[in-house]
């Protein structure tokens, strides 16, 4: 199964989405891989190339479901839930977070936000047709992870670094653990990441930034780094 499409470049299909939110009944699945979404809000028109990142799924929904069950070793025990994490990630190995959101690597934070909200309107289970809820839930969780990683300059810098090394598949910046950080540290946060950002280029792994990732994310990173060496 291949999905080596580069978003925002070739093979784009023009698709007009009107501002009406797809409801459960009106939502039809979209057969192509890359769309140019014309977003019309009032008189303000923006054109954003959005690769929904899952085009291949809509083309072969049943095959994917089957593959994800087969690829997913735990699948048997997870049964109906079919292991959202691993099953799905293994099914789309080439997707970077940028590709998931359908933006370029130089995308601005407002582009990230906009792409995220567009995709949320499409894949959030609340607006999914009932027969696709489970599948779209998985997509939404991946989109969410991509959005959370890229919308935080700290984790985005880490992710970009991994991406340049070809390690992006390993990267899984889960929602940051907020338990260690007290509110009093909040003020320092902004200046903190700015200084960290420059440091990160030099240091291979910054201790402070690691602390803010979940334990699982750190372990996965570590594991994949050592296996890459």
């Amino acid at each position: 199964m291949s999905c080596g499409l580069i978003p925002g470049s070739d093979s784009r299909f023009y698709l007009y989405t009107n501002p009406i939110l797809p409801t459960r009944r009106s939502m039809t699945h979209l057969p192509k891989t890359s769309f140019l979404i014309e977003n019309q809000v009032g008189s303000f028109r923006t054109k954003t190339a959005i690769n929904d990142g899952f085009g291949f799924v809509t083309e072969t929904p049943f095959r994917l479901l089957k593959t994800s069950f087969l690829n997913e070793n735990r699948g048997g025990s997870f049964r109906t839930n079919a292991a959202i994490n691993d099953g799905f990630v293994t099914a789309i190995p080439e997707m970077s977070f940028y590709e998931l959101l359908g933006i370029s690597q130089g995308g601005t934070s407002s582009e990230i936000k906009q792409a995220y909200k567009q995709l949320a309107r499409k894949y959030h289970p609340d607006v999914s047709p009932p027969d696709r809820t489970e599948e779209n839930t998985r997509r939404f969780i991946l989109i969410q992870e991509a959005y959370e990683t890229l919308s935080d300059p700290r984790t985005r810098a880490l992710y970009d670094r991994d991406l340049s090394k070809g390690l992006h598949l390993a990267f899984s910046a889960r929602k940051q653990c907020q338990f260690e950080e007290g509110p009093e540290e909040r003020g320092k946060w902004k200046t903190h990441w700015e200084s960290q950002l420059t440091e990160l280029g030099r240091r291979s792994m910054d201790k402070d930034s690691r602390r803010n990732m979940s334990w699982g994310a750190r372990m996965r990173r570590q594991r994949n780094q050592s296996s890459a060496e």
Binding site: I84, N85, F140, I141, E148, K175, Q176, S214, W215, G216
Partner: peptide, 17 residues
């Protein structure tokens, strides 16, 4: 030991070993 932290977006799925 939290597995899904507060203010995680729903739907959510997280695991820990």
């Amino acid at each position: 030991v939290p597995i899904i932290p507060r203010n995680a977006t729903m739907p959510a799925r997280k695991d820990l070993c």
